[in-house]
Design a protein around this nucleic acid. Structure first.
Lengths: 174, 174
DNA sequence: AGAGATGTAAAACGTTCGTTTTACATTGCA
DNA sequence: TGCAATGTAAAACGAACGTTTTACATCTCT
């Protein structure tokens, strides 16, 4: 495991669990097990590090929702939540924490959310056999809602979203 | 407008727009138009101030969703979003920013979310004529989803949620 | 008239922030 | 053999953090 990977992994864990602003660089050097000099050589800056964390997370998340049906989409979210826990969407959270004023972060978030919306459209097109922008928006809302409701409602929120999505898809199919 | 009200209003605006951690007390004294001595006399501490902001917001928000139907619920959210903008849920955001480690904040958030869930159950009971926990969970997910999806999808997310909720309620009615 | 509450302005508290620097050790490749 | 590259440990940078303090001005009520 090379230095950059170790650093990014440690940063993701701390930023996700305690918040971007609340995580100091001292805490990060300790968690990553490296000197601050090495850290800055690989990270550039705290904001650039967060941006890299988000890009990495985007890759991991997008890989998990490479599916062909809406139901599989929510099954993937159930898995994700089991593995990663329920702390809401790290992209929206880091953007909000910085008021959208940190360009590296804002850009990584915008890129991810655009890709996410596109992917949802593709999944629905594959499931229905044709594009359905209105249904896509509804499923996006359910997915985002499950992610955030799960913070205080637990996994139940995700299965409720899954059920609701199935009903909406069934209705759109006929 | 008395000092405490002015302070709470200024704090809500800054915390909401720029984030809790990213907002310094200097910026807050300037925005509230008072000395730091007066500010601390009324606020106690930054965390207590945030807790009071959340309690205030809970009152304002809950008043707006004192309705009798699911459709009116999403109409109220459309109004809320028009007035307050789309930056996600301040409760979940401040809890995440502090990693859930600030007791005053964590408690205010838990109280609000419990009340919110209860209210949704009441609205659905009034709309359907009987309680429906499964539908309540689905509507909660749609509401939370609309709130967060609107950050990058705009008001369209809220109307999509409204449409989806109408379908689910109609189905539950028969 | 005088006391108590409420306010301002501004300096200071010690701590922590993100980041850079100094000085030195280890490794892999020409 | 020697020189880049890559790492560590630790001190230092100035700025900003949340909070308290000192010194003084206004009010309000008896």
């Amino acid at each position: 495991m090379d230095t950059t990977t170790k650093l990014t992994a440690a940063a993701e864990q701390l930023f996700d669990r305690h918040g971007y602003m609340a995580t100091g660089m001292d805490r990060l050097t300790e968690a990553a097990g490296m000197s601050s000099r090495t850290l800055y050589k690989h990270a550039g800056s705290k904001a650039q590090l967060m941006a890299r964390v988000l890009t990495e997370r985007d890759r991991r998340f997008m890989a998990r929702i490479e599916v062909q049906s809406v139901d599989a989409l929510f099954a993937a979210l159930e898995d994700w939540v089991r593995v990663e826990g329920t702390r809401g969407c790290l992209f929206l959270r880091s953007n909000a924490e910085t008021g959208g004023d940190t360009p590296e972060i804002a850009e990584a978030v915008a890129t991810h959310k655009a890709a996410f919306h596109r992917r949802l459209g593709d999944v629905i097109a594959a499931d229905l056999g044709h594009a359905d922008p209105a249904l896509t928006e509804q499923v996006l809302v359910l997915f985002e809602g499950a992610t955030h409701a799960a913070v205080y409602r637990g996994a139940e929120a995700v299965s409720a979203a899954r059920t609701a999505a199935a009903i909406l898809v069934e209705r759109a199919r006929s």
